[in-house]
Design a protein around this nucleic acid. Sequence first.
DNA 1: CTACATGCAAACCGTTTGCACCCTA
DNA 2: TAGGGTGCAAACGGTTTGCATGTAG
Lengths: 141, 141
Amino acid sequence: MENIYTEQLKNNGLKNTPQRIAILDILFIEEQPISVDDIYIKLKEKNISINLSTVYRSIEAMEEKKIISKLDFLNEGKAYYEYNKAGHRHYLICKGCKKITTIYSCPLELYEKTLEQNTNYKIEEHKLCLYGYCPNCNKNK
Amino acid sequence: MENIYTEQLKNNGLKNTPQRIAILDILFIEEQPISVDDIYIKLKEKNISINLSTVYRSIEAMEEKKIISKLDFLNEGKAYYEYNKAGHRHYLICKGCKKITTIYSCPLELYEKTLEQNTNYKIEEHKLCLYGYCPNCNKNK
DNA sequence: CTACATGCAAACCGTTTGCACCCTA
DNA sequence: TAGGGTGCAAACGGTTTGCATGTAG
């Protein structure tokens, strides 16, 4: 597993350090986007010696290289990150337990083209989040 | 015009103050969502005596009463506000000149239902932003 | 006259930065 | 051994808060 991270860092001209590998591993294992301070807490729990600013700098570097990606539009106030398993995606967020589910399909390709025609904009991308209650939280309301 | 703001505040149990009326007027006149510090600057330009924290508190109260609405997911780092001219809407943002266009139609109603069936979530709302270049910025690229 | 609004200054919180030291390639 | 990476502490920017004062209803 670590070999993958090592490769990925090397291929992108980033040096291999125990801190970066640990960050990648946390993001990889985590099944949903996670905030910077949660990454930091998980690193500490694993007894990995690291500074918060190093987390920020490592994350920034890896995001630039598209190894991970940033979600700065989800929850007000702070950024979330996830390992880059696929390209375009959307998010389904439970308003109860705050669980974030990543959606890999996109219902908007056609709509983008229509909108381009209507507005004369050259549309390049979009961000979509859906909010609601997961089956479990919905039951307990 | 001021009568409308006065009514709106009264109906929502908020006191009429020159500061609140001035904020509402700026948001009403502005044709696109605007940041808090820009509201503050415009107030100062109009020689209205107000403190930044009053802007924040007034805006918060008016947002709670649904007189205005908050966009905290658009541009990283700070919140934007707009006068509540209609309910549900989306945003088209020019990556060149940063102009924000509000879109009042929604292509996702059907999709929401499909997703509800597929995930068993109770979906309540969504946020959508599209990014691209407006005709003018596209020309100059 | 009383509860809500405001101004001011200080705190807050996520994030960034400058600088000295460290360590990977 | 050179240049990127790290730790630490301090700064930053948007936002919030405590408290005293002011004012709309």
